[in-house]
Design a protein around this nucleic acid. Structure first.
Length: 283
DNA sequence: AGACCCCTGGAC
DNA sequence: GTCCAGGGGTCT
């Protein structure tokens, strides 16, 4: 479900409810939801964990803990990492709120409030992290650069010598992070690049344009609190609004907003893909 | 690159 | 019933 703008929005909307509070207990209701080598029992074994704030890397939402005294810095648990996958949600709930139908893990804070990790499809997960645990996590280690801060030169270099389809590369988290099916299609439309174009056939100037419009669409979406198609909600339970600004995603068969021609729908990189055959040039 | 897998629920 | 879904892993 959530791509970069949605995870960023959840991190920002969750922060006021958890920052400065302490974690005093955790309940894992669905065993497969907890992953990694750090067991949930160890989380609060040495007392409450003070929460310093929230963050995001790629599509991973982070809760940062104050490291506990007396533990060595490399192995000290210093946070939680949530991957929401397709249907994961994080909500701050009032004291006493019982688990909901799709609550897979529940975190108790020192003021009695609780953080719910809901996930109907159970693809998402949460894991305890430490500097050493992150080093040992292959997915984390393989993550590419963040699109909001990469330079134009570095962006161009990501695609040099690659023959894969542009959309497949944008979706590949080892190439660049945070982009999923929505923002891949939306950015390729804005850049005028057909999604199935091999990277090697895209001119450098157009590749720089792609970086610019990718930043643009991600920032516009963050301003609108992300795109709510089905399950995505902010930590406050609100829907985002950027779905109202889609130019191609979910619009197959409808007229192109630029030229009026019918938008095409196809499978690229195994994902439903919508593009304008007139406005988006192939190789 | 593609096929299937992990799951559940909504649209048709 | 069947097909589809903001993700990612693992096989061939």
């Amino acid at each position: 479900m959530p791509e970069l703008p949605e995870v960023e929005t959840i991190a920002r909307t969750l922060a006021p409810s958890v920052t400065g509070r302490s974690l005093v207990g955790v309940e894992v209701l669905n065993p497969k939801t907890w992953q990694g080598d750090i067991p949930p029992e160890s989380l609060c074994a040495d007392g409450p964990r003070r929460i310093l704030g929230t963050g995001r890397r790629a599509k991973v939402l982070l809760l940062h803990f104050e490291p506990a005294r007396g533990e060595d810095g490399i192995h000290a648990l210093n946070g939680l990492a949530f991957h929401l996958k397709m249907t994961g949600q994080l909500f701050a709930r009032e004291p006493g709120t019982p688990p909901e139908k799709h609550t897979r893990a529940l975190f108790h804070l020192d003021d009695g409030s609780r953080l719910f990790f809901n996930d109907s499809r159970k693809f998402g997960y949460v894991r305890g992290v430490s500097p050493a645990a992150l080093e040992a996590w292959p997915f984390w280690k393989a993550l590419g650069p963040e699109p909001l801060t990469i330079s134009g030169d570095d962006f161009v270099r990501l695609f040099e010598g690659r023959n894969g389809a542009m959309k497949a590369l944008l979706l590949n988290q080892s190439v660049i992070v945070g982009v999923g099916n929505i923002y891949a299609d939306e950015s390729l439309f804005r850049a005028g690049i057909r999604p199935d174009t091999p990277a090697s056939r895209v001119q450098e100037k157009r590749m720089r344009r792609l970086r610019d419009v990718l930043v643009e669409v991600l920032e516009e979406s963050i301003r609108e609190c992300g795109s709510s198609i089905r399950d995505y909600r902010t930590a406050g339970g609100d829907a985002g609004a950027f779905q109202n600004s889609f130019r191609v995603y979910g619009r197959g068969g409808q007229p192109c907003v630029q030229c009026g021609r019918e938008l095409k729908q196809a499978k690229v990189a195994g994902r439903t893909t919508v593009y304008c055959p007139a406005c988006q040039a192939g190789g």
